[in-house]
Write a protein that binds this DNA or RNA. Structure first.
Lengths: 225, 225
DNA sequence: CCAAAAGTGTTTGCTCTACACCCATGG
DNA sequence: CCATGGGTGTAGAGCAAACACTTTTGG
């Protein structure tokens, strides 16, 4: 029964987010081969028969961009019969969140002519239906920012409250009230102060770290902002 | 490039919800063939190369259960290499919502020994990883009930406010305050009164209908209850 | 007139928002 | 001592929750 059907190809595509130069950005690769040669596309590739979808996404991501062990979450599966000129390809999309130091380490791999971080408001023309995938991923990322604590995946291990607020302002693209923001985030008990402060210009700032176990996806309330 | 890879099979599985005998219920089919012969499973089947994923879900659903044109939404894609003993099968899951009158019309099709509505709190043992799929679908359905207006897909075209409240109480499995519920649902302006009332025992009840265009997925607030 | 279900407002507490000044450090 | 960013509290408005009786119909 299983043998008689012609089968589609299945791939994964990953929308990798990070904050680069104070802008929400996506890691794209320049395609080295047809179709869409020379255009920009999401990292991703075909799923091997002995690996899970998430494993495939991680493998392709590492092969093509050097990004290891990101926070990864499945988004949506795109299966329009015409979405790939080579034939029937169904793709399972994921989003990945990586911290700024991880973002700096990313580097082009074998299948990619080059990789580059692109500001989400200045995207180039994209291969396949990757524009749609990105649009959906951005919507979902913003939603998750307001209702969960995934945002901390975009920060380094230690950060100040100002860092967190800046991140939220960049991702949500709106200004937030400092006092209200701090009250909210502290009362959610999802971060804890470290014993250190960051010194720089002005008054030193208390450093905090994310409490992994406090996965506070509180029912029905916006957590932030 | 596309030709050299061995390909997985791709199927769709649909979690069909309706309210049957005042209980949130799922339509299952009894498997006529191995594997898992005689066990219960979600309706679904393999995707043809020339149809979209959603088309495949609709086609299989109609073939196996007679359910036509339900509200359908993609949920999650399951791709564990071992999830199907016949080989590598990746399945894209959907949930479907159908009104009580549509539910009454469902009927076994060619590939199913029989079909039956099952109370979600009294599910039989299920084939494959369908138990996991259902668990996730129920979580998502409840979430959507609170944040969107999908609930009306489970009601007939005309309904009373008491009907709506009962539906929400059944799906969310909690009692709701009558006055608060009515105020909320009316102030959301997503339903409008018809010119008729339903007569029965007690005082006749105003009938309402859903306003299709009022897709009020209001940012960040619980719509209901 | 009785049973059954429909329909209707108000008060109270809480949460969200708006808003401005002092503090600690380095140069 | 000045520039820079860090840190803090309160008052008012709007929203959500709790709560009980009256109305309309059929039998």
């Amino acid at each position: 029964m299983l043998d008689n059907y012609p089968r589609p190809s299945v791939s994964t595509d990953v929308v990798v987010f990070s904050v680069v130069n104070d802008r929400l950005s996506i890691l794209l690769i320049e395609r080295r081969h047809p179709p869409y040669q020379g255009m920009w596309a999401l990292p991703g590739g075909f799923v091997n028969l002995d690996e899970s979808l998430e494993d495939a996404a991680r493998r392709e991501l590492e092969e093509e961009t050097g990004v290891k062990n990101p926070f990864l979450e499945q988004l949506y599966t795109y299966g329009d019969p015409d979405r790939d000129p080579r034939g029937r390809v169904i793709t399972v999309s994921y989003f990945a969140l990586i911290s700024p130091d991880m973002a700096a380490k990313s580097t082009a791999g074998s299948d990619a002519a080059s990789i580059k971080w692109h500001d989400i408001d200045q995207l180039p023309e994209l291969a396949f239906d990757h524009k749609d995938i990105i649009t959906y991923a951005v919507t979902r990322l913003r939603y998750k920012f307001e209702h969960s604590t995934v945002g901390f995946e975009l920060l380094p291990d230690e950060f100040t409250l100002t860092d967190v607020q800046k991140l939220y302002e960049i991702v949500l693209d709106e200004e937030l009230d400092k006092r209200n923001f701090r009250r909210r985030i502290l009362s959610a008990k999802i971060i804890e102060p470290t014993l250190e402060k960051r010194i720089g210009e002005g008054r030193p700032a208390q450093l905090y770290r994310y409490r992994q176990n406090a996965s506070a996806e509180i029912k029905s309330k916006r957590l932030f902002p």
